[in-house]
Design a protein around this nucleic acid. Sequence first.
DNA 1: ACCTCCCGCCATGCT
DNA 2: AGCATGGCGGGAGGT
Length: 864
Amino acid sequence: MENEKENLVFEPHKRGLMKTPLKDSTTNIVLAEIPPELGPLTTPTKPKEVSQGEPWTPTANLKMLISAVSPEIRSRDQKRGLFDNRSELPEAKDGLHEHLFGDEYEKSQPSRKEKSLGLLCHKFLARYPKYPNPAVNNDICLDEVAEELNVERRRIYDIVNVLESLHMVSRLAKNRYTWHGRHNLNKTLGTLKTVGEENKYAEQIMMIKKKEYEQEFDFIKSYSIEDHIIKSNAGHNGHPDVCFVELPGVEFRAASVNSRKDKSLRVMSQKFVMLFLVSTPQIVSLEIAAKILIGEDHVEDLDKSKFKTKIRRLYDIANVLSSLELIKKVHVTEERGRKPAFKWTGPEISPNTSGPSPVIPFLPSDLELRRSSKENCAKNLFSPRGKPNFTRHPSLIKLVKSIESDRRKINSAPSSPIKTNKAESSQNSASFPSKMAQLAAICKMQLEEQSSGPRKKVKVQLARSGHGNPAAPLETPANAELELTAPSLIQPLGVVPLIPSPLSSAVPVILPPAPSGPSYAIYLQPTQAQAMTPPQGLSPTICPTHSCKATGSTDTTDATTEKAPNGVTKASASAKPGSLLPGPERQGAKNRNREPAAERGLKRTGLLEDNGSKRKFKEDLKGLENVSATLFPSGYLIPLTQCSLGAESMLSSKENSGTLSPNHRIYSSPIAGVIPVTSSELTAVNFPSFHVTPLKLMVSPTSVAAVPVGNSPALTSSHPVPVQNPSSAIVNFTLQHLGLISPSVQVSASPGPGTIPVSPKIEAVSVIPENVGAQQGRATSYGSPVLGQNKLNGQSAAVTAAQQPVPVTPKGSQLVAESFFRTPGGPTKPTSSSCMDSDGANKTSLGTLFVPQRKLEVSTEDVH
DNA sequence: ACCTCCCGCCATGCT
DNA sequence: AGCATGGCGGGAGGT
């Protein structure tokens, strides 16, 4: 089957050439031995191949391209000899080292470097055009690729998962992925940025730095790292993590895939990218990234091992991102010492909205989407696997208990109407490990919230987008309402009408279009919002966050500026101005939601105790809570354009069909189906997904309102709707609580200043070298056309056009369409989380907060 | 000695 | 049961 396309396999001989085996010879051997070709391919195989040089060019071409593209790589290759092909390489290498052996082969193999994921990724990327012609089929058969590249399939998964997180590929079926190239990249990044802002990653980063800083200083140690982590994560409760953020066109179809989505490398990858997009210097150290990512889950146990594992994974992700030229390795020198870090070298993005697409579509989907999302969420939440950890943390434990009870309630509760998910729901209940706990917590919170205030239900409607619409599914249903407790959601910018206030959970929001692309819609799930509440007391983080970013992001210009203050900004380029708009809207919408949460939060806060310094934290937490956390759930973004198209999309339908059924058109619908879910359900769902992360939260409206103000207007802009009352005071308050602000620091009341950094320490980053400018260039470079062609697929021809970004076209559309929303299979859908958050106000605060950053020096190493 | 991170065991889940 | 996925962490190569 698969082979169809490519199969390049040929080259049998290659084996020798290639490398072989890896590690030990034995191993290698084995691998090598494996028959390469197997027709089938299924799995195992791995032939080696590859490289041989000449013959097959694709690889060779790729390499060349790659090398061309990146000097680094080139040099690297040269060293290795990659270029040549492996065949040569080995020898060469060997030569270097030892050619002695006869064996070489093994040896030849090489060094690990040659086997590095980064290199492998380059090879992989070389096979496909950066901007594939949508019309063509750009299918990727994993088996084939693995064979061609001579690697184990496992490695391919690593690459694909990361690419998938950027929506550069999407899973089509079992062994198949569709290559999208960079067409959606900017959108995706914009979306991720938005989500990252919502999650307050910037804030979290600041908190961590701050803490570190303090610690360094000392004392302040009062908080232990954990504490802060917690706090930061606190959000974690609060925040939900982000589930996987999906784009419209690209979704996961395969249910299976979805299942592990939560933890997956995919999510981690997105989060990691978010950190870059959100942080000012755009330099993220592995340590911080790991803490934040972990935070989500367990902060509690600081487990060292976990930390290590996380770091390992981050390296994996970083290697792929480096190959994509989105990041580059650098070292940050802090007081403490030098730490490995990565610098963003990708395009600057403005918050998602960018895009031009005007349309807004809407997703039809509602139903389906919802459904799917819901399902997904649910799954995630409950995932069976559960990790135990979750509960470990003492504080968490408490929460857990309560949560559990809540959970029960929840489960029992009927939530949603939808049935589709039933299954899921059932599932949900079942498993859950740690995540469950979290979920539970969330749920609990939600419950509380509800109790306090009834949830709101939202209905969402999506508008269809206009444009495209095609499908539009509007299904009414879709809109249906969701009840959400939570409020927030995002709204897309433009579009919409969304609902402001209420947010539905999965409401789709429309975002402004991205620059290039179409706009996306985000769906939020309500659940989170509810969930958000901080269960543990942790607080979710709330708000502020963005501020920084927001500002920055929002307007580009500002961003830069701002950054500057803080640190330097170097890199950022800002780019797109304008886009801001959306932001506000979203926020507004989101925010608006509920306040209640805040209230709750307050209450909860009580839990924590304050102690000196700690107090601070508490405060923060409270703040957070107050903020309210409403989190939201994740949502997805959908590109409008795509939406429209697609009727075809149905694709998945079959899978889903059950549930979905038929809508084929569905694309839209996937969600919709879901819709009905109760909020509670939703919530639940969301959480799971996130485990951790921060949350998005929503703040009460008021706060929200405030928020906007804070940052630059532009930023604010995002929230369109502002809440009505803004009390700056509130905001400040919140911020303080959140901890975002350091106690000492105060946020300025005025929102306006939000941005203001208090004393920022700014990081001085010295980035070393890198050329910024270059970066951009690079990015582009990649895709040389040539590559495309090579591909086996044959499609190649079409490819060339790299540029076409336009997938919109009908054909492309079709593709898109398909994907589009559909989620796959059913259930899976992803939800993404989105979180939107609240925003505004908080942000402001955030902005304010100062971050202690230390100065960093960055040195680049390129390496790799 | 530390930084990276390859490798592949094995759990998870879908067929 | 079998296969596709992918979490995970031991431990080794590189510096």
